[in-house]
């Protein structure tokens, strides 16, 4: 393949912008990979043509190329995904001709043609005996963190105006899909209706985050609580729980509330992990300063000892 974009597009050096555009359109119609799925040569050619047009299609870039400021290389478009690369997937079936009224019909047609069933179809013919499951309908649902953690029922209005009851199972994960049997498109003949597939997005919560089957929360405590230990009320997804903070805890220490997390599919429940954070008051008063000065006089521990040992 030639490197010269003029040659790639098959235009003269003096061609007008309009002529270049016309030449590109002609080639795009001839070579577009979605019109020739699976043809690697045409794809390569199309990419060369696109890259050439990237330069020549823009009057400014073209003059920079003509004066040698930029070369033909380095302006190729990044590898692009073409539609036909997805169209082979099952989920692309929504774009089959007649999809929504059931693409299965055409598929059965192919086989009936192949194996001559139509000829042997008898009196009623093949079509009247045709039964197929209705198509699946895809929906999307945003769910609050707590609803997802504890499970909930939601009434949802579908785009077609139908109302539908959706049960969100406790512990559902972000991106999980719920299948509602029989809530999709109607079936054909005696075929059953399709399913509604509801993809769930879980909205973030200001306090709780999810880590596997555990729920994490950050709990602020005062310095005296950290030194002396205390009993605090901690919110969990299933209500407030009294928790003991032991004497002498540090920021970042993690305490575990067993069985206060999310339900596990195999049975049982995850834990709630409480991350402690020591918070000082906004204003340090004189007495607190005195306390710290007093403390500094007789305490010689160095929390950065390890740090120093590994860096020097």
């Amino acid at each position: 393949m030639s490197d010269d974009p003029y040659k790639v597009l098959g235009v003269a050096k003096k061609a007008s912008q309009d002529e270049i555009k016309k030449a590109y359109r002609k080639l795009a119609k001839k070579l577009h990979p979605d019109l020739h799925p699976g043809d690697a040569d045409k794809k390569a050619e199309f990419q060369a043509v696109s890259a050439a047009y990237e330069i020549l299609g823009n009057a400014e870039k073209r003059s920079r190329f003509d004066t040698g400021e930029i070369d033909a290389k380095g302006h190729e478009r990044p590898e692009r995904d073409f539609y036909h690369q997805y169209a082979g997937q099952q989920r692309a079936r929504r774009y089959d001709p007649g999809a929504g009224t059931g693409g299965a019909e055409d598929f059965s047609d192919l086989f009936s043609d192949l194996f001559g069933q139509r000829a042997r179809g008898g009196q009623g013919g093949f079509r009247q005996e045709f039964h197929a499951r209705g198509s699946d309908a895809h929906y999307h649902l945003d769910v609050d963190f707590l609803d997802a953690a504890k499970g909930a029922g939601r009434r949802v209005t579908m785009p077609d105006g139908n109302r539908m009851e959706v049960t969100i199972p406790a512990g559902i994960r972000d991106g999980q899909t719920l299948r509602l049997r029989g809530k999709g498109g109607p079936g054909f003949g005696d075929g059953p209706p399709g399913d509604a597939l509801v993809t769930v997005t879980i909205l973030p919560h200001p306090l709780f985050t999810r880590a596997g089957d555990n729920v994490e929360i950050e709990l602020p405590i005062t310095f005296d609580e950290a030194v002396l230990g205390t009993k605090v009320d901690v919110p969990t997804i299933s209500g407030t729980v009294a928790m003991t903070v032991p004497k002498g805890t540090s920021s970042g220490d993690r305490l575990r509330l067993k069985g206060r997390g999310l339900p596990i599919t195999k049975g049982g429940k995850g834990d709630q992990i409480v991350r402690l954070r020591i918070v000082l008051p906004d204003k340090i008063d004189a007495r607190m300063e005195d306390l710290a000065k007093e403390w500094r006089k007789h305490v010689k521990t160095d929390p950065r000892q390890k740090l120093r040992r590994t860096t020097t």
């Binding site: 979605d34 019109l35 799925p37 699976g38 539609y83 036909h84 169209a87 082979g88 692309a92 079936r93 774009y95 089959d96 001709p97 693409g103 055409d106 598929f107 192919l110």
Partner: peptide, 10 residues
């Protein structure tokens, strides 16, 4: 194009 892709998949 849709028909072409459907036939390809079949």
């Amino acid at each position: 194009i849709d028909r072409l892709n459907q036939t390809r998949r079949e």
